[in-house]
């Protein structure tokens, strides 16, 4: 680069350097992008700076392979909201609009107390239910399972599937109609649905349809003759 004054050159390098992150993530204004393009085409130092920062950018863009399913987390949120609603309904006169409930804006201290009592009551109920289920389970099956332990199959189940978190109910219903399937249970904590057939359509045909859909993460036949499942 050829500048009239050294301080101008230094300032230009500094300004170009501050633009680089926003150039890389595509949020920079067009005139600034052009300015940076021109500068790096003439300046080896800033070109190296850009290449190095691109390595960092690409490294941080790399996605994890873990797919997070919202269903189980959403149930926890719903339980929290139910606790607040229950406390508010105990505490307030009938007919007050939902949007004016204390749980949605400023929670007064007595509302908090009632909410705490409600949450504790729910927690105790869950604990008692859990103990009862554990006691019952001891008499019928082991207290543990492994990844190879067969999960009890719902009656009529022919396919297990996991759908993308962004699938809408309309899309899901349309897909199930086309594949002539219906949901008979689920989702599990892992987001798995059990599907049953609505017609005599071959299971393999429905399975192929599911696996070919962009918003089906996983589809597996539970029929022994249809082979192993695979990601679509």
């Amino acid at each position: 680069m050829n500048y009239d004054h050294p301080s101008h050159a230094v300032r230009e390098h500094q300004e170009i350097s501050t633009l680089i992150p926003w150039y890389l993530n595509g949020s920079i204004a067009e005139h600034q992008r052009q300015r940076l393009d021109v500068h790096v085409s003439l300046c080896a130092e800033c070109r190296d700076d850009l290449a190095l920062e691109r390595s960092v950018y690409l490294g941080m863009r790399a996605e994890t392979a873990v797919e997070y399913m919202p269903a189980a987390s959403l149930k926890l949120l719903q339980a929290r909201l139910d606790g607040i609603d229950a406390a508010a309904s105990v505490d307030l006169p009938a007919g007050l609009p939902a949007a004016q409930r204390p749980g949605r804006a400023a929670v007064p201290w007595h509302g908090v107390m009632a909410a705490s009592v409600a949450v504790m009551a729910v927690a105790l109920s869950l604990l008692a239910a859990d103990r009862w289920l554990q006691a019952r389970a001891r008499t019928t099956r082991p207290d543990y399972y492994t990844v190879t332990t067969a999960v009890p199959r719902a009656p009529g189940e022919v396919i297990r599937a996991v759908f993308a978190p962004n699938i809408t109910l309309v899309e899901l219903q349309s897909l199930l109609d086309e594949a002539q399937l219906r949901i008979i249970s689920g989702p599990t904590e892992a987001g798995v649905y059990s599907l049953a057939a609505n017609s005599r359509r071959p299971v393999n045909s429905s399975l192929a349809l599911l696996r070919g859909h962009a918003k089906v993460r996983f589809a597996e036949s539970t029929q022994p003759s249809t082979g192993s499942g695979e990601l679509p």
Binding site: Y68, L81, A98, R101, R104
Partner: peptide
């Protein structure tokens, strides 16, 4: 306006993005 279904839809649409960021 107090619509729980709307909150759930918003939750599902942001869950993946937030989970990947926070993880």
């Amino acid at each position: 306006a107090g619509n729980r279904r709307a909150l759930e839809e918003l939750y599902v649409s942001y869950h993946r993005r937030l989970a990947r960021f926070l993880s």
